[in-house]
Each structure stands twice: as structure tokens, then as C-alpha cells.
Design a protein around this nucleic acid. Structure first.
Lengths: 200, 200
DNA sequence: CTCCAATGTGACTACCCAGTCATATGTTAG
DNA sequence: CTAACATATGACTGGGTAGTCACATTGGAG
């Protein structure tokens, strides 16, 4: 958490700090990002930065939080619209795609956070993963109860697959993957590889 | 490529360099790994290291190559045994699992190489990805021709899914995921989420 | 034994980093 | 006007890094 001093700043100055930090953490993962560079680009002194934040990690987590806060505003719509699990999942990834398009830097910040293997971030990552897993489990459970999803599948394995594919999809949003491709990928997950006799 | 001097070394000394470098690159990704630390742990001088290798990248790529060379010795068996595409893929991941168990450090080196976003490694990563994609495309093509795999799916999307899931599976081999879980994950990919009417 | 090429060395350069602290400059209250 | 407090500063500390180079050592050929 930033110190009170940071929130006492006049908004334009505060925003400048945020903007430069976002740029830096979008460019490089936590360990390689340079607080010195952020400070320099902001036109403030090193000492000031340490009046605003406890340390580099404090600044980083604040920026990551901002990114996820904004992202939540997008993906929340997916759960609001309703429909079967496949509709919701497609909408979820479409909204993630919109987020990536509209906030490319925040998108990269979020991606790099997720990829990071840094020990200091381990706890934060695992907490996020657990909370997603819980939400997904409940969601999947309902879909299985409704008969939308094959009851023979292992829910943990399903989450594993969706998480892996979802992460990679989101990772590649800024590399020319469009909404059409997203649909085809979700088709693979929905239908499975084995030919469906019922459809032949 | 290491310089000739490296290959002129007495094997035990050469091996010590390799072993320490493997440890370091298993511990940390390229950018964060410390050549100075490798040198120190080897008990050789910095200058000597630069007699053996052009630079840090040269050493790194040599180590990564060793890791993949060893890994290939495992996964090659999957393609040798034959069977349908699902049998081969399961065997492929089982062999990857064996590799991770028997060579945990090389496994981590390979994983960290794959995860790395470093610009200097971009070309090497992309070349590896392309070559895998080509192999997979041919393999999938045959399976579709044989009717083993749903012809309605987009081959590129199938590769995307398998690559994402496979990467994550392999990433988590050293975190208590066993062969049973692997099978369940592959079931999800094989069958898809939607309930199959033919099996009800 | 001698010479020479191959090999080994580690102090050194030139850089980068996070975080600190004594000092200076507002800013507000009495 | 002054005292007290909040904020700003940047040189500095102590640490790390990759890569270099003048010099030292070694080992074999003649």
C-alpha cells in the first residue's frame, strides 16, 4: 500500500508517477524493472518515491492492483450477461481481449505479473490462482449439474486446461490473434478432438 | 557454440563447468542468472570462462541445447511406439514427465528457456515453436485423414490448445502432478467439455 | 634446456541497481 | 514572525553484473 503522502499529491503529479510506473512494469517483469528509471522519467527524486511507497514491491503491487481493477471492469460483464457456460467463457475471453486492446500497457503489466516466477510474488500469484480456481469450480459444478458439461470429466483437470489455454490466449492478444481465432480455440475445448459420432 | 578450448578441457573439468552452469540456469532465467556465480562455484577464473565461451549467451544456449538433447532421448520413444494420436500424445507427456523426474535440473533449464521473454532469446524460441508447430501439423493432419480427429476443428487452434496445456503440464511436473492427473487432462482435450450424446 | 603457443588468472572497467539520509524547502498554525 | 511539520532532494552506500586485459603458468616440440 502506498503511503498517505502519495494520496496527498496533487492528482496530475500522482498520475504521472502511475503512468511512468505502468510503462516500466509493462516493459519488464518486476525483477528487471528499474525503479531508478521510473523516478528519472517522472522527474521526481529517488527520495520522493520512497516517501510515497515503502519499496519497489509496494509500488509494483499497487500498479498490478490498478491493472486488475480495470480488467475486472471488463470481464465482470461476462458473468452479468448469463447464458450457458460456453457463452459465458467466450464472453469472458472476448472482454479480456477488449481490455488488452484498450489498455495495452495494463494488459502487459497483468501478463508479466502472471508470468513472473519471482519468490516475492509467489504468495500473491498463488492467492490469485486459488481464488480463480474456486470461482471456476463453482461455475463448472453448476454447468455439470445442468448437464451442459460432461460429468465424467475431472473438474480439476478442466480448470487446469482452461487456465492454461486462457493464459496463453491472453498472452497472445497483442500478437495478432483475433476474435475469430478465439472462437476456434474454444471450439476445440468445447467439442474435444475425438470425432463426435452424433454429428457425423 | 563453445570455443575449441572448452572441448580441449579434461572431461572432469569440463563436466564441472557444465554442472554448475546447469544449476545456475535451472535456478534462474537467463537474464537473472549470474555468470560470475557459475565461475565462482566452478573454481575457475572469469577469464577462463571467456576462453571457453564467447559470452553469457553462448554458455546459456549450449546448456539449453544439452537439456533438449537429453529430453529428445526421452520423448523420441513416444513417436516410435506408434498407435493413434491420443496414445502417442499421452506417451509424449509421460516421457516428458520421466525426463522431469530423472533430470530435474535440465527440466528446469528447459522450462525457464521456454518461459523467458528476453529479446536475445526471442529468435531461438520462435524457431523452436515453429518447428514444433510443423511437426504437430503433419501429425494432426494424418490423424484427421484417418478420422481419429474431428475434421471440423481448426488445426492451428488445436495446436494452440495442445501447446498451451502441454507447456503448463510440463511446468507443473515438479509440483506434485502425477501421471493420473495427466490422463485426466488429456481426457478433457480428447472428449471436450460438451456431454457426448453417443455415450449417454 | 629452451622456446612458444595454449591456457589460466583476477584485478579492473564501466555499468546498473535498491534503498538511505542529512539537508533544504515549502506550508500551515499559533 | 516563528515554530513545527510535511514534503522534496540527490549524493551516497553497498551491492551486484558482464566482459577485458596485462600478465602468469603450463606443457609439449625441437
Amino acid at each position: 500500500m502506498p503511503k498517505q503522502t502519495f494520496f496527498n499529491l496533487e492528482p496530475p503529479k500522482r498520475q504521472r508517477v502511475i503512468d511512468r510506473a505502468v510503462e516500466e512494469f509493462a516493459r519488464l517483469p518486476f525483477e528487471q524493472a528499474s525503479l531508478s528509471k521510473v523516478v528519472e522519467d517522472c522527474g521526481i527524486s529517488k527520495g520522493s518515491m520512497y516517501q510515497y511507497f515503502e519499496d519497489k514491491l509496494d509500488l509494483y503491487l499497487y500498479i498490478v492492483d490498478l491493472a486488475y481493477e480495470e480488467k475486472r471492469r471488463f470481464v465482470a460483464q461476462a458473468f452479468a450477461t448469463g447464458g450457458d457456460i460456453f457463452t459465458v467463457l467466450e464472453e469472458y475471453y472476448l472482454q479480456s481481449y477488449c481490455f488488452a486492446q484498450e489498455h495495452p500497457l495494463l494488459h502487459q503489466v497483468a501478463n508479466k505479473f502472471w508470468d513472473s516466477k519471482a519468490e516475492v510474488l509467489k504468495e500473491h500469484r498463488e492467492q490469485g490462482l486459488l481464488s480463480r480456481a474456486r470461482d471456476f469450480a463453482q461455475f463448472l459444478n453448476e454447468a455439470m449439474a445442468q448437464g451442459e458439461v460432461n460429468r465424467g470429466l475431472d473438474p480439476e483437470a478442466v480448470f487446469f486446461v482452461y487456465h492454461a489455454v486462457g493464459k496463453d490466449l491472453i498472452d497472445h492478444f497483442d500478437q495478432g490473434r483475433n476474435g475469430q481465432f478465439l472462437k476456434k480455440v474454444l471450439d476445440v475445448l468445447r467439442l474435444g478432438l475425438t470425432t463426435r459420432r452424433e454429428e457425423m
